[in-house]
Design a protein around this nucleic acid. Structure first.
Length: 439
DNA sequence: CGCAATGATTCTTG
DNA sequence: CAAGAATCATTGCG
C-alpha cells in the first residue's frame, strides 16, 4: 500500500491534464514535435500495445523496463483515472442499504431468542423464554422439557457462533489475500488504492450477505425448535385419575347446569392441580378445567348413553359422601356392571332424543322403544337398579335424579333456567352451593 | 398396529 | 366474548 504513493509522487508531475494523449501517440513515432518526453511516452504505449506479440521472456524484460521507466507513475495515474471514470462510476451507483432492515430484524430476533448477544446471559434468556412460553403447564417433566429445549438452543447457539467466527475469519483471510493480490497486480495494472478499498467493501458485503443467510437459517431453526417444544398439543397429558374424578364429580353433580363459574373453576383447578402435580399454577389450570368442561359437555350431550354408567357412578358416589354412610361406600360401584356398560355403548342411538325418552321411561314403567327392545330394557333395568340402590340410602336425597338427563331439553341443549322441583336437590354436598343454578 | 379416549386448538355462532 | 362444534394430535389399551 505504501509503495504506491511513493511511486506516484516521486516524479512530482502527474499527467492528469492529458486525456487526449493516447490517440495522439498511436500514430507511431510522434517524433515531429521533437519533444523527447512525448517520444518516450509514445514508445511506452507502443510497447504496451504490442505486448501480446512478445515472447514471455521478452515481455518480462519489457515489463521490468516499463516498471522502471520514469514515466510509469504518471501513466499509472492516468490509466487509473480513466478507469475510475469509465468503469467504476457505473458500478459505484449501486451502493446498497436495503438489506439493513432485514438484517436488523434478524439480529433483534436472535438477540431476543438468546442466540446472539452475551455469551452466558443468552442461555438464561432462552430459558426464560421457554419458561414463559410453556408457563402454566404442569408436570415434573416440564423441567425436563426445558432442559431439552435449552440444550437444543445452546446447540444452535454454538453452531451459530462457530459458523459466524468461521465466516469472519474467512472474510478476513480472503480480504487480505485479495488486497495483496491487487497490490501486487497494481504494479502491472492500473489499480488505484481507492479501487482496492472498494473491492474490500464488495467482499465484506458479500460475506455479510452470507452471514445474513446464516442468521436467517438460525432464526428458522429456533422457530422450529420453539414450535416443536411449545406446541402444547404435541405434549398432551392425560389428567390423572384423581383429577378426573374431581372434575367428573363436579360435572355430574351439576349436571343441570354444568357451567362452573370462574371461582368454581379456580377451586377445581386448585383441587386438581394438587392431585395432578406439584406445580401450582392455578391460573393456567383453570384453562384446562374450562377445556375439560367444554369437552365434557359436548361429549356428554353427543352420546349420553355412553356416559350413563359414569353418571350413575358419580351420582352414587356423591350420594354416599353426602349422606356420610361409610359402611356402604363400597356398594357405590356395584351397580355399574360391565354388562350395563356394554349395552349402553352398543345402543348407538342416532340422536339423544330417543335415549332421553328411554331414560324418561324410568319414571313411567312401560316404555318400549320402537326398534330397540331388549337393549333399552336392559339399560332401564340397570338404571332402575342403580336408582333403587342409591335411593335406598336416604329418601330425602334426590341425587339419583341429578344424573338423569332431565337437565337437557328435547333439542339436546342444556336448560337455560333451572327446574327447581325436579332437578335441584335440597341436600347437596357440604361444599357445594346453589350457585351452579344461578348462573 | 388400529382404535377409542381425551386434552387442546380453531372455527363458528349467537 | 363465551359456548358449541369440528378437528387435530397424543395417549393408552387390546
Amino acid at each position: 500500500m505504501d509503495e504506491q504513493p511513493r511511486l506516484m509522487h516521486s516524479h512530482g508531475v502527474g499527467m492528469a491534464g492529458h486525456p487526449g494523449l493516447a490517440p495522439h501517440m498511436q500514430d507511431g513515432t510522434g517524433g515531429t514535435d521533437g519533444d523527447g518526453r512525448k517520444q518516450d511516452i509514445g514508445d511506452i504505449l507502443q510497447q504496451i500495445m504490442t505486448i501480446t506479440d512478445q515472447s514471455l521472456d521478452e515481455a518480462q524484460a519489457r515489463k521490468h523496463a516499463l516498471n522502471c521507466h520514469r514515466m510509469k507513475p504518471a501513466l499509472f495515474n492516468v490509466l487509473c483515472e480513466i478507469k475510475e471514470k469509465t468503469v467504476l462510476s457505473i458500478r459505484g451507483a449501486q451502493e446498497e442499504e436495503p438489506p439493513d432492515a432485514q438484517l436488523m430484524r434478524l439480529d433483534n430476533m436472535l438477540l431476543a431468542e438468546g442466540v446472539s448477544g452475551p455469551e452466558k446471559g443468552g442461555g438464561s434468556a432462552a430459558a426464560a423464554v421457554a419458561a414463559a412460553a410453556a408457563g402454566g403447564g404442569v408436570g415434573s417433566d416440564n423441567s425436563a422439557e426445558h432442559s431439552d429445549y435449552r440444550a437444543k438452543l445452546t446447540q444452535i447457539r454454538q453452531i451459530y457462533h462457530t459458523e459466524l467466527e468461521k465466516y469472519e475469519q474467512a472474510c478476513n483471510e480472503f480480504t487480505t489475500h485479495v488486497m495483496n493480490l491487487l497490490r501486487e497486480q497494481s504494479r502491472t495494472r492500473p489499480i488505484s488504492p481507492k479501487e482496492i478499498e472498494r473491492m474490500v467493501g464488495i467482499i465484506h458485503r458479500k460475506f455479510s450477505s452470507i452471514q445474513m443467510q446464516l442468521k436467517q437459517s438460525t432464526c428458522e431453526a429456533v422457530m422450529i425448535l420453539r414450535s416443536r417444544f411449545l406446541d402444547a398439543r404435541r405434549k398432551r397429558r392425560n389428567f390423572n385419575k384423581q383429577a378426573t374424578e374431581i372434575l367428573n364429580e363436579y360435572f355430574y353433580s351439576h349436571l343441570s347446569n354444568p357451567y362452573p363459574s370462574e371461582e368454581a373453576k379456580e377451586e377445581l383447578a386448585k383441587k386438581c392441580s394438587i392431585t395432578v402435580s406439584q406445580v401450582n399454577s392455578v391460573s393456567g389450570f383453570t384453562n384446562e378445567v374450562s377445556n375439560w368442561f367444554g369437552n365434557k359437555r359436548i361429549r356428554y350431550k353427543k352420546n349420553i348413553g355412553k356416559f350413563q354408567e359414569e353418571a350413575n357412578m358419580y351420582a352414587a358416589k356423591t350420594a354416599v359422601s353426602a349422606t356420610s354412610v361409610s359402611a356402604h361406600g363400597s356398594q357405590a360401584n356395584s351397580p355399574s356392571t360391565p354388562n350395563s356398560a356394554g349395552s349402553a355403548a352398543s345402543f348407538n342411538m342416532s340422536n339423544s332424543g330417543d335415549l332421553f325418552m328411554s331414560v324418561q321411561a324410568l319414571n313411567g314403567d312401560s316404555y318400549q322403544g320402537a326398534g330397540v327392545g331388549a337393549n333399552i330394557q336392559s339399560q332401564v333395568d340397570t338404571l332402575r337398579h342403580v336408582i333403587s340402590q342409591t335411593g335406598g340410602y336416604s329418601d330425602s336425597l334426590a341425587a339419583s335424579q341429578m344424573y338423569s338427563p332431565q337437565g337437557i331439553n328435547t333439542n339436546g341443549g342444556w336448560q337455560d333456567a333451572p327446574t327447581p322441583s325436579s332437578v335441584i336437590s335440597p341436600t347437596e354436598g357440604p361444599g357445594s352451593v346453589h350457585s351452579d343454578t344461578s348462573n
